[in-house]
Design a protein around this nucleic acid. Sequence first.
DNA 1: CAGGATCCGGAATGATACTG
DNA 2: CAGTATCATTCCGGATCCTG
Lengths: 142, 142
Amino acid sequence: MDEASFAEFKCETENNAGAKIKLGSSECSAALTAVGDALYVIGGKWKLRIIIALSEGFTRFNELQRRVDGISARVLSNELKDLELNGFVVRTVQVGSPVIVEYKLTDYSDTLSDVLRSLRAWGTMHRANIKNRMKEATQATS
Amino acid sequence: MDEASFAEFKCETENNAGAKIKLGSSECSAALTAVGDALYVIGGKWKLRIIIALSEGFTRFNELQRRVDGISARVLSNELKDLELNGFVVRTVQVGSPVIVEYKLTDYSDTLSDVLRSLRAWGTMHRANIKNRMKEATQATS
DNA sequence: CAGGATCCGGAATGATACTG
DNA sequence: CAGTATCATTCCGGATCCTG
C-alpha cells in the first residue's frame, strides 16, 4: 500500500541502515504523539460514548447509564469526573428534593465533532463490510 | 451548547416524559452504535499507534516495538494478530536465515485515514491547549 | 530475529449494598 | 435520584525464559 499516506512529516530514523536513532522513542513522528495524546484523553471504552449520549441531550446520571449500554454506575461516575477534569463536561447541582444533577457538554467538546464524525462514518462502513463478509462466507459454505 | 450537534439522527426516547423506551438499549442512536463498533475494532491503547507506525514504513516486529513506545513484545504480538484478523494487516514470512517476517498494511486500512487525520489534528490542538492552560496557571501564581 | 509459554502483581470492573 | 463503599474477580500487562 501507499507508504506513509497520512504522515506528511517525514521521519528519518534509518530503520535498518545507519541506526542513527537517539530519539527518546516516540519523539519523531508527530502523528504518533498527537494520536497518542488524543487517545490518552478520549480513549478507552466509554469516553466518546458518554460524550455522544450527552450530545444527544441526555443530562442525568441514570439517563446516561441507561444510554451507554453496559456501563456500571461506578465506572460512569469515574468517567464523568475525568471528562469534567479535562474540560469536556460541566456538572451542575440543583439543590432541592430530589437533588438534580446535570451534566452538560462544554464548548470545548465541540472540537471533537470532526473526530466523532469520522469515527461514526468509519464504524458504519465497517459494520456493513463485516456483514458482507459473513454473507459471502455462508454462500461459500452452502 | 448546541444540543445534538453531531447527531442528525434524531432519537425519540422520551427521557423523562412518556417513558416509551423499549429499545434493547443501544438500539436508537446510530452514532452510539457506529462509534461503538469503531472503538471495538480500533480502540484500545495500541491499535491505532501500531497502524501509524506501519504507515510510516516500519514492517518488522522489533522495529515496530521500538516505534510504539512502551509496548511489550507479547502485547505487540497479540495486537498484530488482532489487526490481521480484522483485515488491517498482512503478515508475510520469508523463509531463510534469519527468518524475515513483515507486517504490511492492507488497502482496507486506508479507510482509516480520515479517522487518523481528525484524531491527529485534535491531539495536536489539544496539546497546544494544555500548554496554554499551564502557562496561564503559572502566570496567575507568580 | 520473531515470537510463544509461563508466572505473577496490580489495576480495572462487576455485583451488591448502602447513603443523603 | 445520584452516587459511594466494599469485596471478589478478572484481566491486562510486565518480566523472564525459551525456541526455531
